[in-house]
Amino acid sequence: MDEDSIILQKPLSQLIADQLKRRIWNKEIQFGERLLETDLAETYDVSRSTIREALKILEIEELVISQARKGTYVADFTQQDLDEIIELRTLIESQAFKHAVNNLDQKHFRDLEEITNQMKAKVDEKDWNELFDLDMKFHSYVVNLCGNSRIIKIYDSLQVQIRTFLMHLDQYYSSHQSFYDEHKELLQALASKDVQIVNERVKNHIEYVEEKLLGVGAGQKSELEKEEV
């Protein structure tokens, strides 16, 4: 089934929810911004009930918040949200990637190579949004091969939150090239079939982000953890 067929099968409310997500990720709609049903219904030429359904989808995904007598707003993405996503990614992806190693065959490596090739093209175009979409595609592909249905289900439920988290990263990477290079190194680690190398590479990939976002290096982090104890 091709992508167009899948899109045609989606309810209208889901299609609108997807477009609103994309506008948030593209920073066309800002965190904390109020979303008015009447304006959105006019923009998308649909009924207000369809817009309400779309906003309900986004509310379930924790991308918007509805407040009685106040309206619906795009949820703020706080420092705590960033911390929690980093922690979750470390826990889930380090385990999933390790388990996926022995399940990867030549077809899987060709698919992952194709994703990294697409990333290389987006590096040349300096397109962060497409790079982040491909990042999600790369990581989800490997997680889905871990053989643990519950890990896969939990990771799938976090997709929107993780993608929203990624939109913060463009200001922390030195270049589009460095972002691509990390994924090339991840692929090389997987190809080595060495679980320890894969685990270290995944954690380094995520901890690099943690250091940039939180301003805490590995040494500082250890000292802070000692103080907390």
Score class of each variant (00 low, 15 high):
L134K: 03
E93K: 07
Y44W: 10
K10A: 08
T72R: 10
F109R: 11
H183Y: 15
K137T: 14
I92Y: 05
E84D: 15
I7D: 08
H176G: 01
K153C: 01
K10G: 02
R150P: 00
L190P: 05
A75E: 08
K56Q: 13
R150K: 13
A189K: 09
E59N: 12
L131T: 03
R150E: 14
H176Q: 05
L145G: 06
Y141A: 12
E84Y: 11
P11K: 09
K122H: 07
D127M: 05
E37H: 11
N129V: 06
D18Q: 11
S47Q: 03
E61V: 01
A121M: 10
Q67M: 13
H139W: 01
Y180T: 05
V195N: 09
W25M: 12
T116M: 05
Y180I: 03
E182S: 15
M119S: 01
Y73P: 05
S140A: 12
D39P: 01
S222F: 09
I85S: 05
G219I: 09
F77C: 12
A96K: 03
K70I: 02
L12M: 13
Y173Q: 05
H108P: 02
W25G: 05
I57H: 12
M167P: 00
S94L: 02
R150D: 11
I115A: 11
T43I: 11
E210P: 00
D194Y: 03
L134S: 07
V64T: 15
